[in-house]
Design a protein around this nucleic acid. Sequence first.
DNA 1: CTTCGTTTGCCCACTTTTCCCCACGTTTTA
DNA 2: TAAAACGTGGGGAAAAGTGGGCAAACGAAG
Lengths: 141, 141
Amino acid sequence: MELFCREYRYSLDAKNRLAIPAKYREILGETFIITRKLDPCLAIYTHEEWQKYSDKIKALPDSVAMELKEFIFPKTLVAEPDSQGRVIIPGDLKDHAQLDKNAVIIGVGDHAQIWSEALWEEREKKRDLASLRELMRQLGL
Amino acid sequence: MELFCREYRYSLDAKNRLAIPAKYREILGETFIITRKLDPCLAIYTHEEWQKYSDKIKALPDSVAMELKEFIFPKTLVAEPDSQGRVIIPGDLKDHAQLDKNAVIIGVGDHAQIWSEALWEEREKKRDLASLRELMRQLGL
DNA sequence: CTTCGTTTGCCCACTTTTCCCCACGTTTTA
DNA sequence: TAAAACGTGGGGAAAAGTGGGCAAACGAAG
């Protein structure tokens, strides 16, 4: 079972290259999809997971989902890591995730996310355990 | 799977020539279709996608869709990029999209769009993230 | 019919960006 | 302890985008 888990801390170099964890590359294969989320972070999908995700969006008529398509597709790329396992993060995606030198790559089950270290740590700090506890109770977990 | 994604910033030169991203030219082939949208922008289709799109319009009876046909077909052309991968944007289409020197070409899945940089950035700024979030929630994304 | 001026298409050249490869130091594995 | 793998940095070659020039084609005016 392919599962993205653990978090990794890497750095963006002067050429905006970011290493992808070797463990994730094994899952992802030769190429994979990087896109943006509504939150200030990026998402990494396998082609397979991306297909499921994007098919739902493409199936919608433009009249209701043009904005969504405009939000997602222009910020989506097929990433080909170089021989060292790095991908180039384009400027616009870097801006969206507010990335500087220090980035965190986290696995969240069916995909992975790229966060700026600062934003990620802030998010961890603000986490409301009480509401999570309540959510799990409602879900019967 | 042919997918238009990413955004590119190019400039219209003094001869109204606009470069088409090399990635898109690979998808589009030798020639392709440029038309206008209701929004102040232009659309680029492969012949295949254009066929699907225009067939739907042509199938409509004139009694309900004459205005739509008048809007679209006179402003549609078969574009042949020059040896450097540029196409000439006719004056009327340039006016429709309010293009000046700086243009943005965005991929939105099944086709691409040409925007003036100013209009595109305004649109990006005005985007209603809350409604996008709601739409994605409904889709289960 | 000729001439002039504009437009159109093709080609060349420059600049920037992107891509690919090699090398170093640290960490993990056998 | 040696070897392999991994993350990081940088240089050189190739490609892509941009601008300008030249000649053929076209249309208007003389």
